[in-house]
Amino acid sequence: MANSYFRFKQFTINQDRCAMKVTTDGCLFGAWVASQLKDIPATNGLDIGAGTGLLSLMVAQQTALHLDAVEIDAAAATQAAQNFAESPWANRLQVQQTDIRQFIPSKQYDVICSNPPFYENELASPKTGRSIAHHGSGLRLLELLAQVNRLLADDGTAYLLFTAKRDADLGAALAAAGLFVQQKIVVHPSETHPSFRLMLAVKKNSVEQTAEQTVYIKDKEGYYTPAATSLLQDYYLFL
C-alpha cells in the first residue's frame, strides 16, 4: 500500500505501530473471507495465528460474527488486543495469547480463518517473531490442518491462505486431515507474474468443488484490477 493507514468503514489502523506489517495479499484474503461470510448464518469464528488482528477486524466489519483470535507471539497478541479494543466491534472480538495446540475452547466454530506460516522449508528470519509468523517452525502444515479439523464444526467452513508453492503438498495434507476443498482461488500479484498465493475454503465433509478461479491483483500497467478493487475498496484509504 502507498500509505501507512489501513481504513475500515469506521476505523483506521496506523500500520506503523503493528508488530507485523499489513500486506496486500493478506488484505485481499481478509476481504475475500469477509465477502464469503456476509450471507452465511454463522455465529462464531476463530482466527488461527491472528497476528495483530487484521483478519479478524476485516471479518468483523462485514459480519455479525463473534471472533476468537489466537496468537502465539506475545507482542502481536498485545497489539491485536489494542486494535480490537479501539475498534467499533470490540464487544465481538477477543484474543488469547497461546499456542493453538494448547487452545481448548468450550465449542467448535462455524468459521475458521487462518493466514498460516508460508515457508516451512526455507531460510528463516533472524527475528524470532517474524520467523514464527512466516515459517513452519512453530506450526507445520499437517499440525495446522489437524487443529482446523479439531476446532471446526461439522457443518463449518475454514478459509485458509497459502503460498502457491504449497499447491503440490496441499491435496495429500488436506486428505490426511479429513478436509475437503470447496473453493480454490489462485492469486497472481499481476497479470504478468506467476501465481503466488492460494485462497481455499475447506470443509470436514466431502463437497463438490466449485470451478477454480484466478484473481490478478494488478494489471499490466500496475493498476489494481476490477476484481481486486471490488474486494479491497471497503478497506483501503486510497483506492
Rank of each mutant, 00 (worst) to 15 (best):
D16R: 11
M1P: 01
Q96C: 12
T225L: 13
A80M: 03
M58T: 05
R92Q: 04
L67R: 04
W32N: 07
Y236D: 09
V202S: 02
F6L: 14
I185P: 06
A69R: 07
A164R: 10
A146E: 01
L161R: 03
Y236N: 08
L232D: 01
Y223V: 06
Q94I: 10
G49M: 08
L93I: 03
D154M: 01
K204M: 04
D169I: 02
Q233L: 08
T192C: 11
T214H: 08
P117I: 08
E122P: 05
S206V: 00
T24P: 00
T163Q: 11
F162A: 00
P116T: 05
M199W: 04
D39M: 10
R140I: 07
P189N: 02
P88R: 10
Y236S: 08
D16A: 08
Q15N: 03
H188E: 09
W89M: 07
T23K: 14
P194F: 05
A164W: 14
Q182D: 09
S137W: 04
S56A: 15
L37H: 00
L139P: 03
T128F: 12
D16F: 01
S206Y: 02
T43D: 06
Y236Q: 11
H134K: 15
F162Q: 00
T210C: 01
Q213T: 02
L200S: 12
V111T: 11
